[in-house]
Each structure stands twice: as C-alpha cells, then as structure tokens.
Simulated scan of single mutants.
Amino acid sequence: MKLTVIGCYSPFPKAGEATPGYLFEDHTGTKLLFDCGSGVASHIHKWINPKEVDAIILSHYHHDHVADVGVFQYAAYMALLNGSRSGPLTIYGPSLPPDKAEIRTYKDISVAKDIGQGQDIELGSCRFRFFQTDHQGPCYGWHVTDGRSSLVYGADSGPDTDWDHVPLRPDVLILESSFLEQNKRTGVKHLSAKEAALIAARLEAKHLVLTHFYPEVDPYQYVQEAKAFFSGKISAALMGFHLSLS
C-alpha cells in the first residue's frame, strides 16, 4: 500500500496548495483518491494523470473535501471518449444528504456507491471498513488493510467520535488537526493537535500523520503540540508526503 498527500489544508488552500486529497495505491495498481478537495485535480499530475484514478472515496460533502469532483468526472469523460479509459469512475460516499450525494453521478461517466457505518468493501487487494465520525455530514472515516499493514483515515472527526470501531495498533493513523489547542472553540466538530495525539495514544498507533491544517498557521506548530501527548512517530501531511506500507 502506498499513500501520497496531494492536499492537506482547510477550509481553503494555501497559495499553490490544495485542500484534502490523498492518492492511495495498492500492489495490483489500483489507484484511489481519498477525498477530492480544491486544487487536487491540478496537483495530482505530479504523480499520475487524473484519468488514471479508478475510484474516489468521499468522507462527506463539505466543499473543501469535494470541490474537484466534477473536474475528475470531466477527466474520466474525455478518457472514455478517446478510448484511454475502459469504464466509468466509481465514487463512494454517504447517501445523505441526498442533494449533496447527487454529485457522485454524472451522466454515465461516474457511478455512485454508498458507504455506511460498519460497512466492508474490497477495492483492489485491500479491505475497507467504514466508521461514522463526530462531524456534520454524515461523515465517515475508514480502516484499510491488505492483510499485512493497516491504515486509518479519520476524515473530519470531532472529539466525540467513537474510536472503539477502529482496530488497535494501526501502522498509520491520519487525523485532522484543524486547531491548536489554544485556538479551539467550544462545540466545534474538529480536533486539535492535542486531541489527535491523545487518540493516537489510545489506539496505540505506530505513526500519526496530522493533516487538515489552517493555511495561515505553520503545520509544524501542530506537530510540536502533538509531541507532548504522543510518544510515537508524528508527521505533517504536506503535499508530496509519501508513505509505503508492506
């Protein structure tokens, strides 16, 4: 399994960057996109052509996670027309709210498939299991494994997410850190770097990858805050950050 960060900022991208988007590849060559924010379609060219994406998994339908969905549909459309793609783009995501979930379908170019709490799907050589997070949406994160290594993508997740649905000791845990603890507002359905670190410690993660940074704050401030609460490896999910598992 390989993961490459395309975008990591929210709720808007830093100049020359992108909001959330992560390229996931397995050993069979299956190429998936985890979320699809603003700027992802442009920057993904550094690694693959947008038409090569086999499927997109959307955690929820907030703009910073779905802004480039239509652009990937256009890329698939043109590839189907010129024969460089053999089938439609599959887009996984919540079925609710219905008006937002409609973005997954475009003519016969993209096919919508629903995700839900506790649902298992197989994509390529990997098995995915979804869990609902504490974030307006609904929003889902997922655990993915190829039988040897495991990765957890927490999507957007507030402090009341039920992490009991997530297996312990993931090799990689990707969590948002939208705030530094000193700046967090009460009732916001997002995590601070401190909260992300405490979750990583609870799950006994081997490697915590922080993401979802506010573009006007240095990402390494989030890493420094997390280090006080988690003794394992911590990285910032900056564009081009690459992980290779198993």
Results as ranks from 00 to 15, higher is better:
130 F>S: 03
225 E>S: 07
171 D>M: 12
193 A>G: 08
42 S>F: 04
98 P>R: 08
84 S>R: 15
120 D>A: 10
243 L>Q: 00
123 L>K: 07
73 Q>W: 05
130 F>A: 05
14 K>C: 03
244 S>N: 12
126 C>Q: 08
54 D>F: 01
123 L>A: 08
227 K>V: 09
218 D>K: 02
182 Q>W: 05
99 D>G: 07
23 L>R: 01
169 R>G: 13
192 S>R: 08
100 K>V: 12
104 R>K: 09
45 H>M: 14
192 S>I: 09
221 Q>N: 07
69 V>L: 02
20 P>T: 04
1 M>L: 14
211 T>V: 11
161 T>H: 05
233 K>E: 14
64 D>S: 06
237 A>P: 00
49 N>I: 12
6 I>K: 01
29 G>C: 03
43 H>L: 15
32 L>F: 01
172 V>T: 06
73 Q>H: 05
81 L>D: 11
165 H>G: 04
119 Q>E: 13
212 H>V: 13
106 Y>Q: 05
208 L>E: 15
90 T>G: 00
82 N>D: 05
35 D>R: 02
210 L>H: 04
232 G>P: 02
236 A>K: 07
35 D>S: 11
22 Y>T: 11
26 D>H: 09
39 G>Y: 02
176 E>V: 04
65 H>V: 13
236 A>H: 14
9 Y>R: 01
148 R>F: 11
77 Y>D: 15
54 D>I: 03
62 H>K: 08
237 A>M: 00
23 L>S: 03
35 D>N: 11
102 E>N: 05
199 I>Q: 01
200 A>V: 07
137 G>T: 02
65 H>S: 13
94 P>N: 08
196 A>V: 04
119 Q>H: 10
212 H>M: 06
65 H>W: 11
129 R>D: 14
108 D>F: 14
229 F>N: 06
28 T>S: 10
244 S>K: 07
5 V>E: 10
213 F>L: 09
15 A>F: 08
170 P>Y: 14
28 T>L: 14
156 D>R: 02
223 V>D: 01
211 T>E: 03
246 S>R: 00
164 D>E: 15
173 L>Y: 14
176 E>N: 10
113 K>I: 13
42 S>H: 05
51 K>A: 14
148 R>Y: 13
242 H>T: 05
79 A>C: 03
16 G>A: 02
110 S>D: 06
201 A>T: 10
77 Y>E: 15
26 D>T: 06
199 I>T: 05
221 Q>E: 05
72 F>M: 02
199 I>L: 04
204 E>L: 11
48 I>K: 02
168 L>H: 12
66 V>I: 08
216 E>W: 03
26 D>W: 10
89 L>V: 00
221 Q>M: 03
206 K>D: 09
139 C>R: 06
231 S>C: 07
55 A>I: 00
64 D>N: 12
156 D>L: 14
95 S>M: 10
43 H>Q: 06
60 H>G: 15
8 C>H: 04
232 G>E: 10
166 V>I: 15
76 A>W: 00
